[in-house]
């Protein structure tokens, strides 16, 4: 689904976001200067390695970073021109769930183990759509069926559901609120591809009908190809490449992005071994001076290790953080 997004209103603007955690005496630099804009109706895919800081970015937008572990947060996060970072908890509570809702990566932390799945979906519906108990339950049953779970499971508890069924309950809760911004953190990793397709269709439908904007965090580049119109590739807490789906998928430019595409098993080719990107990501407690990817990069030079480079414009809306790409022009 393509959107003429440029004409739409700016919904979310993240500026120079930085987040540090403290962990066993040292400081983990989880997010290191992330900026991006999201317009109404747009959908942005956030991809990148495990531990790159994607969930931390999402939690920053929701303003739900863990108090005890978060050492420092800096930057601005404008939602409809209001800085969420400056907002009081009370105001945030009104925004969470009804205007911004999040599907968590780990469904169990989001579900209440002692409440039936039906009650949990109905609760959100009652709260946001002002329905009475009986109508909310009917709506909850409908929502459960929309995510492909039969109605006779409505009175069961989360532990009686499979991993993917729990994930679908969380999605049902998030979608029932009709949010303006949906942040979905790995929403379909536990789902088979037919149900995944149904869930992605549901999200597309919501976008089409309500103009909902979407931030989709995923490792699955196929899901991004299907659902997103913008892509940001995150590495070691930074955006290393951002652009439209076409720009990034047709012309992946950062060596890390290229490595990601190279590591996917090919559906139509047989290989004995897959090709992961060599080496390991940098230690987030001791980030290097220069490019964070230099140690794993086949093209890295001394200059790359000495200077940390900025996101540079290549074409259209395509930006890349790489000295080599920059120099090649």
């Amino acid at each position: 689904m393509k959107n003429e997004t440029t004409n739409n209103e700016l919904l979310l603007s993240v500026q120079d976001l930085e987040v540090d955690y403290s962990s066993g005496g040292s400081t983990v630099c989880a997010v290191n200067g992330v900026s991006f804009d999201l317009h109404q109706g747009e959908s942005l895919g956030l991809v990148g390695e495990t531990g790159a800081g994607k969930t931390t970015i999402a939690k920053s937008i929701m303003q739900i970073l863990p108090d005890h572990a978060t050492k420092r947060v800096a930057g601005e996060i404008f939602f409809k021109n209001q800085d969420l970072m400056q907002m009081k908890e009370k105001e945030l509570q009104n925004i969470r769930g009804s205007q911004i809702s999040m599907v968590f990566q780990d469904p169990m932390t989001a579900l209440n183990p002692v409440m039936t799945v039906g009650e949990q979906i109905a609760e959100g519906i009652r709260h946001h759509q002002h329905l009475d108990k009986a109508h909310a339950k009917q709506a909850a049953i409908k929502m459960l069926e929309t995510v492909g779970i039969s109605r006779d499971r409505i009175d069961e508890y989360p532990h009686q559901f499979s991993g993917g069924m729990k994930q679908r309950v969380v999605i049902a809760i998030a979608l029932a609120c009709n949010p303006e911004l949906l942040i979905a953190d790995e929403p379909t990793t536990a789902l088979d591809v037919t149900i995944q397709a149904q869930v992605l269709d549901l999200i597309k439908e919501l976008r089409r009908q309500k103009g909902t904007s979407l931030i989709l965090i995923t490792h699955d580049l196929g899901v991004v190809a299907d659902t997103c119109d913008k892509v940001a590739v995150v590495y070691a807490g930074e955006i290393v490449e951002i652009g439209s789906l076409e720009e990034v998928f047709d012309h992946p430019s950062h060596p890390y992005t290229k490595g990601l595409f190279g590591a996917i098993p090919d559906m139509y080719k047989d290989v004995a071994r897959l090709s992961p990107i060599d080496g390991l990501p940098p230690n987030p407690t001791e980030l290097p001076e220069g490019c964070y990817f230099a140690d794993r990069c086949p093209h890295a030079t001394e200059e790359c290790r000495a200077r940390h480079c900025q996101l540079e414009h290549i074409t259209g809306t395509h930006y890349v953080r790489c000295l080599k790409t920059e120099q090649e022009g």
């Binding site: 990148g48 390695e49 495990t50 536990a190 490792h219 990601l260 590591a263 071994r273 992961p276 990107i277």
Partner: peptide, 30 residues
């Protein structure tokens, strides 16, 4: 739960271990 690069590493690892030790797997995935 892994990114595609680490996924590739882990799959290679599981296949290497299988070859070396004759391991047998049931592999559930979507």
């Amino acid at each position: 739960a892994l990114d595609v690069s680490i996924q590739a590493q882990i799959l290679n690892l599981l296949m290497d271990l299988q070859e070396e030790y004759g391991l047998t797997y049931i592999f559930v995935t979507h």
